[in-house]
Design a protein around this nucleic acid. Structure first.
Lengths: 109, 109
DNA sequence: TTGACATGTAACCAAAAGGTGTTATATCAT
DNA sequence: ATGATATAACACCTTTTGGTTACATGTCAA
């Protein structure tokens, strides 16, 4: 897989169903690679590559703990997607976007 | 949470920056292919392919009008992404997700 | 009817994505 | 020290992606 820097943004990271499922798993509990792999019908090597893509998008990070590498979720980058989407929300749900606008401005006081 | 339906789902469709820009353009005004192409440093054929991917995800549709094919936006499928994201919103913004919950339940009355 | 315009599409290409297996290294339990 | 475990780092393969040319078809305007 590519090692070129910032080649994988958050939009690309979440494009793959396996990676979305990894995020869901890590949203419940941090896990070492082998534990994550148990949930998928593919090799640990493949999961490791997906984890690297997610890490490049800063959606996960891993720390070494003994001989394990424990990965944990960092959902913050998803905010960029949420903001991108919010532009289109007005097309299907005016009420919600108006409410969001009110809440966000309320915060600034 | 299995939506591994079509080859090109909405997550894959929005993964590409060019396709996101096409959506933005079409959010302002419907356009024929050649007009869309003017905004990008690539051939019309490439844009046509991107449009096919977006159409497969039901994010755009095209109607023939004379010798032109006019594409227009259909943002509804983005709702799936928005809902997926909303699960993670609680990690960075509790207030908003609580409000959304209230609004959504209000709708069901 | 002729020519310019707008599109469809096939053939091709390079690079990236998504997977495999192998090997090497570090760590933990005996 | 030995052996099982957990991961990293490769090399390799196949399919998909994102782009190109080239050409065919259909439509509008003189």
């Amino acid at each position: 897989m590519s090692q070129a820097a910032h080649k994988h943004d958050v939009f690309q990271a979440i494009a793959d169903p396996t990676r979305r499922e990894v995020l869901r798993l890590l949203s419940q509990k941090e896990m070492p690679i082998s534990k994550i792999t148990e949930h998928f019908p593919m090799t640990r090597t493949a999961i490791t590559k997906h984890l690297h893509v997610l890490a490049e998008a800063k959606l996960v990070s891993g720390r070494k703990e003994g001989r394990e590498k424990v990965y944990q979720l960092h959902p913050e980058p998803l905010e960029e997607v949420q903001q991108w989407i919010s532009f289109y929300e007005k097309f299907w749900n005016n009420k919600l976007s108006i409410l969001k606008y009110i809440v966000e401005n309320e915060d600034k006081n």
